[in-house]
Design a protein around this nucleic acid. Structure first.
Lengths: 230, 230
DNA sequence: AAATATTATTGATTTAAATCATAAAAGTAA
DNA sequence: TTACTTTTATGATTTAAATCAATAATATTT
């Protein structure tokens, strides 16, 4: 066995944040009292990169992308579905948002008071452990992405993202993907034209089928093989 | 202002782990009782990727690289100097080491009992906060590296690494770099020949000077500019 | 429905960077 | 010292993927 399999990085870890389960009624009441719940429409910016972090976000419903931009360059570092925390980096030490957060679907976002969350972490060990489980899983995921995006070529990278979307975000082999070709390019570190060509290749090889925004994975084993080979 | 400056990602955060300062005598004694202190020679493997995590490591002295490998591919995801924790991902949730750790210099490594560290985090809030400050800083650093390695071209990436080594690891504009050209390539996601060519370019342009393993940064502002432009 | 803008697709061309090939230098062992 | 291995360096060639250019298909607005 030669180290870990970098291909399946997204499926190993269930990042679902069921962290609130451990809270007492009083604790829940405190969080609830100080939270602000905001609705966002598809396309809206929830957090702008570089702004000062004043809250921890909990995505109650919807889907968002986390992205870093400078002028020409645009990289989507992560996609987060409902029931996930966002901006946990800012709990301790990091003052500014290192990435922008944008709604890919209509979203409901809870802005939690950063001090409240700190208090819970201090007070409720199960909550703290749950939160750090999520943070740590995300660290490993980011390492895997770093490896994928820098070491694999186009087909391997795209296979990785398909496996990630299927295994982690949508938990199904079919899903409606609310991402443009440009988004997919920013997610896989390639040009939009390359995304289109690879989708075409994968369809020709019967690895996937698409109709509009809908994608279905037809040959999971082969996709994993492509991911592993790079 | 167009977002954050991705060029200076390594200098912003002082990741030095002075976490032990907050511990009581009893707490220190506990840690000490269960720790194992091991010396490693330059080149030795301290942790092999894929193995089960049983300890949290504290690098008492020396310098290490964290790297991910599969067959041909080799990526150094991070360099850590003395007084830093390693393998904090494995505190909660992550069971296996996602990367290998190798000594770049002779090292003294403390293997801390994972349960001890969990206990301290639970018991001593200052310690917990310090640890998570380090973890979160590392998350942001990894995002910046993801951006640098995927969005910038060779010269920008190499400028980033020089700034990182100077600002974060050695905290000086001159330093002895115990990294081969191959290591530098694995660190910047490029071919060793490209590293050599870029060093040559940078020397020609009087941005740096080198003699053997010694590197001196001569023109920091221009290096930052190259980093920012990409 | 017509007009306009945006997104997706395809093929041709260019290019940044890898690979290849070979030599020089620096370590290491015999 | 010589022989051998590893690392560093440099130029020539190849290639993966980006860019460019032009069209088709969707959306969106009027």
């Amino acid at each position: 066995m030669e180290g870990m399999d970098h291909g399946t990085h997204c499926e190993e870890i269930d990042e679902t944040a069921s962290c609130f389960n451990s809270l007492t009624e009083d604790e829940l009441a405190m969080i609830d009292r100080n939270k602000t719940e905001i609705k966002y429409s598809k396309g809206e910016t929830i957090i702008k990169q570089g702004t000062k972090a004043t809250n921890i976000l909990y995505l109650k419903d919807g889907l968002v992308k986390l992205s870093m931009n400078t002028g020409e360059n645009n990289l989507i570092i992560n996609i987060k579905p409902q029931n996930h925390f966002i901006s946990t980096e800012n709990l301790y030490g990091v003052e500014f948002h290192p990435y922008s957060v944008t709604a890919l679907q209509d979203c409901i976002v809870c802005f939690l008071d950063i001090e409240d969350v700190r208090y819970l972490i201090k007070q409720n060990n199960i909550f703290a452990t749950d939160i750090y489980r999520v943070i740590n899983a995300n660290v490993v995921l980011t390492y895997d992405r770093l490896f994928s995006l820098t070491q694999k070529q186009l087909h391997g990278r795209f296979a990785d993202i398909l496996l990630c979307l299927s295994g982690k975000i949508f938990k199904d082999t079919k899903f409606d993907l609310p991402l443009s070709r440009r988004d997919l390019a920013a997610l896989t570190g390639m040009a939009p034209e390359s995304v289109i060509r690879i989708i075409k290749d994968f369809k020709n090889d019967k690895l996937i089928s698409t109709q509009g925004k809908r994608i279905e994975i037809l040959n999971m084993p082969m996709l994993k093989k492509i991911s592993a080979v790079g």
